[in-house]
């Protein structure tokens, strides 16, 4: 088993009522630490923001539109880490 901390996708909602937005990723041993790390890395601990973290491996992303390429990369990591996408509705706010 790899000893690398899992990758988490970070979503932040600022103070202005906009929806949670994907801001980037980071590594953390678990969800709690991912939230703390997100505060330190992506908000410099601004208060009054809401943070969602989702383990990147749990995300299902749509396929690229063109079926043309039979060249779809088989590397699973690539699928597991779409860096930008709309906020999934079923993500629990945390």
């Amino acid at each position: 088993m790899s000893n690398e901390w899992p990758l988490w996708e970070i979503f932040i909602r600022g103070q202005h009522g906009m929806a949670h937005r994907h801001v980037g990723s980071l590594h953390a041993p678990d969800a709690d630490m991912a939230i703390k790390n997100a505060r330190d890395v992506y908000t410099r601990r601004n208060e009054g923001v809401s943070i969602w973290v989702v383990e990147a491996a749990r995300i299902t992303a749509s396929s690229p539109s063109d079926k043309g390429p039979m060249y779809d990369p088989a590397r699973s990591k690539v699928y597991r880490h779409p860096t930008f996408f709309d906020i999934p509705d079923d993500v629990e706010p945390m």
Binding site: W5, L26, H27, D40, V41
Partner: peptide
Amino acid sequence: PVLEEDIALAN
């Protein structure tokens, strides 16, 4: 030991 901790400690 890891980047995330480096950033947190600096904070």
